[in-house]
Amino acid sequence: MPDPTLRVENLVTAFHTRNGTLRAVDGVSFEVGRGKVLGLVGESGSGKSVTGFSIMGLVDPPGRIDGGRILFQGRDLVGLPEEEMRALRGSRIAMIFQDPMMTLNPVLRIDTQMIEAVKAHHPAIGDDEARSRARDALAQVGIPSPEARLKAYPHQFSGGMRQRVAIATALLNKPDLIIADEPTTALDVTIQGQILFEVQKLCRQTGTALIWITHDLSVVASLADEICVMYAGKIVEQGSVDDVLDRPTHPYTHGLLRSVPSANPRGQPLRQIPGMTPSLLSLPSGCAFRLRCERATGECVQVPEMTAPMAGRRVRCFHPLLSTVPV
């Protein structure tokens, strides 16, 4: 079997702060193949963004990758020299960020910001060629009159258009892997739909692998092939998107799905998961979810291992919901 585009094995990324060590990503493993979309789902602080930054090699001190391997096309990115990592970044692996209002430099024109992305990886390419690539990329993500828009500054674009520019920039060098960190969270629902549609189409066409980081289950449902649910730095459930969303086995996934307002009967109080996301500094021993879990028993003070309760499904729980009715 050929190498998948990306295989992450037992990744540990920790922040060494004065108050102690925070394991933001704690033994995460997954893989994404060509043209596939992986949804990385979790609440704020579950470690999903840090996972993305770890793959990009952009974890800033005091954060550091403490263990595991990140195999990109068979090559381990952990410990790769900065210059080699830089050559991959934006060229083979691209990233799109959450807030389109902040990701573009306010004082540089769009063409400057796009052309430099081309030239950083292809110094031999002339300005004209780089500019025409930028123009094509803008057209590709559905920006009208791209030639004229190249000369604009970021503040002359709406949020949705800026995110399109950011996506176009990520696409410039035809990467093999795109990490999208909640790129549609800050956008209107209609714009979000358009962008999801465009991105999905692009991945199918070009065979680009995509990791879509989000807390929005409805986005994942329509976009992803596989899904990883993260809680407190660990993946708690993993499987194909339809399976996991239709028949969640981990109590946390189950709780998340039940919290989506539309799933609740009208007129009833909205359901929620009791308690709060624990601070990484004071995680309960054993299963991090046990204090909020209605199925927890004495056994849960041990750390549960990943198990495969059914084909194509992995779950980290002593008491998975194996025979429940769908949510």
Binding site: M56, L58, R86, A87, L88, R89, G90, S91, A94, M95, F97, D99, M102, T103, L104, N105, P106, Q113, E116, A117, A120, H121, A166, T169
Partner: peptide, 17 residues
């Protein structure tokens, strides 16, 4: 600390640029 710096680095620009 701004996002645009992280995005610029994610584009593969050198630290110098």
């Amino acid at each position: 600390l701004m996002d645009y710096v992280k995005f610029a680095r994610a584009k593969g620009l050198s630290a110098r640029r």
